[in-house]
Simulated scan of single mutants.
Amino acid sequence: MLRYTLMRLGIFAGCFVVVWGLVYAGVVPHGLGGSNIMWVALLALVISAPISFVVLRKERDRASVQVAGRVDRMKANIESSRSQEDDVVDAVADVAQDASGAQRQAS
């Protein structure tokens, strides 16, 4: 997952440098007033998103398999905890039922 994130960040950084160069060269218009850096960042984000979508497809699939594995392990752990809690609750209920039955017999 970290690898995918770093690759995506690298594509964004590359696009940022290219867009900044194009703005500096006058090929792409400057932003309004002091918003030039925001304009460059936004344009780089818009350009890098489809590039990342296409170029990082295999890496994204690998990352999703890792995430799905983690989710499955977490679900198994939660289910294990839930069953342990159910066993404890059932044991306490049995003890309470036995105690109330013993009280009824004593009375």
Rank of each mutant, 00 (worst) to 15 (best):
M38P: 06
I37W: 11
G26T: 04
V92P: 04
S83K: 14
M74E: 07
I37V: 12
I51W: 04
S48E: 01
E85P: 02
V65C: 05
A96G: 14
K58R: 15
L9V: 14
V17L: 15
I78H: 14
Q103F: 10
S52L: 03
Q66N: 10
E85V: 13
I51K: 01
A76H: 12
D98C: 09
V28Y: 07
I78L: 14
R70G: 15
L9E: 02
L22G: 05
D94F: 03
V18I: 14
V27E: 00
M74Q: 11
A25H: 00
A102R: 12
L42G: 15
I47Q: 05
F53I: 07
V17A: 15
F16N: 03
S100N: 08
Y24E: 10
L43P: 09
R60I: 01
V28D: 01
S52M: 04
V88L: 14
S35V: 07
W39S: 11
S107V: 11
D61K: 13
L43Q: 05
I78M: 12
V67E: 06
A102C: 01
I47A: 15
A63L: 02
R104N: 09
R57F: 08
L32A: 15
V71H: 09
I51H: 03
I51V: 15
P50D: 05
R3H: 04
A63P: 02
L32M: 10
D94K: 06
V23W: 01
